[in-house]
Amino acid sequence: MNTEAIRGAPSWHIHPDAETLARHLARAIARMADAAIAARGAFHLVLAGGNTPQPVYAALVSRGRRWDAWHLYHGDERCLPPQTLQRNSQMAASVWLQQVPIPRAQIHDIPAEMGAEAAAAAYAAVLPPQRFDLVLLGIGEDGHTASLFPGQPWGLDPATPAVLSVHNAPKAPAERVSLSAWRLQRSRELFFLATGSGKRDALAAWRRGEDLPAARVGAGATVWLDEAAWPGS
């Protein structure tokens, strides 16, 4: 899927439960990695943070191949010390990356411990010039995605920076770093992940056409969710 063409309605992939979803999504990511490596010699993946993707990352340990060709980035990060458990980089490392031989130089953590402004500028220089192969995102109960929150700048205009410094986020910590909306959309494929009844209202608002960060970033994306998160008709 060419992101220049991502403009339509999302497609909804509903699974019976979070465990089944994680298994199928990990399999899909592994297939995409194989295809990207065969076609272009590398797989460039942007990781979602938070708790929801943890089972997917754990399932990838036994699914992935050709780890030497994987290049990983983060959609956002919290401005906390590097070893803090609440960091997205720490979560991904503990459930997945410490168990697979991806070269450390190809795991691009956001240096959010530098502070939001400095980290955003530094991370912009790390991003590849080409499109990502896959961007994986979540959705918050308020409709935010990455660290793009309602009522704050989302970076939809390609003239804005590729990486944003986020201040006064409504969820702690207030200081964060996030890829902008347009840079997240600059990907061959865009997947959203949502599980649990707590996401149902946000997904219902998305389906109603409300102007949420997730809906703006995810127009035309594939949304992977379990039955508990599905708001129905």
Rank of each mutant, 00 (worst) to 15 (best):
G209K: 09
G218L: 10
A202C: 06
K199V: 08
A204I: 04
A215T: 14
D226P: 07
A205I: 12
G209D: 04
A205V: 08
R200Y: 11
R216C: 08
A214V: 10
R208M: 10
V217F: 07
R207L: 14
L225M: 15
A204H: 10
V223M: 12
E210I: 07
A219I: 10
W206N: 02
E210S: 14
P213H: 05
L203N: 01
D211N: 13
K199L: 11
W224G: 01
G220Q: 12
P213L: 09
D201M: 09
A221Y: 01
R216N: 09
R200C: 14
A202L: 01
V217C: 05
R216V: 14
L212Q: 03
R216D: 02
G218T: 00
G209Q: 09
G220P: 03
V223E: 05
V217N: 01
V217T: 01
L212N: 04
G209E: 02
D226E: 10
K199A: 05
D201K: 13
S197F: 05
L225E: 02
D226I: 02
R208T: 14
A205L: 15
G218Y: 01
L203T: 07
T195N: 04
L203S: 03
P213D: 08
T222E: 13
R216Y: 05
L203D: 12
G220V: 12
A205P: 06
A215L: 10
L203G: 05
G218I: 07
R200T: 12
A205R: 15
D211K: 13
L225S: 06
L212Y: 11
L212D: 09
W224L: 03
R207G: 12
T222H: 07
G198N: 08
E210D: 15
E210G: 09
A194H: 03
D211R: 15
P213C: 08
W224S: 00
A202N: 03
G196W: 08
G220N: 11
V223N: 01
G198W: 01
D201N: 11
A221N: 07
A204F: 07
A215Q: 12
V217M: 02
A214Y: 00
A219M: 14
T195V: 14
A194L: 15
L225A: 15
R216S: 12
G198V: 10
G209N: 03
R200G: 06
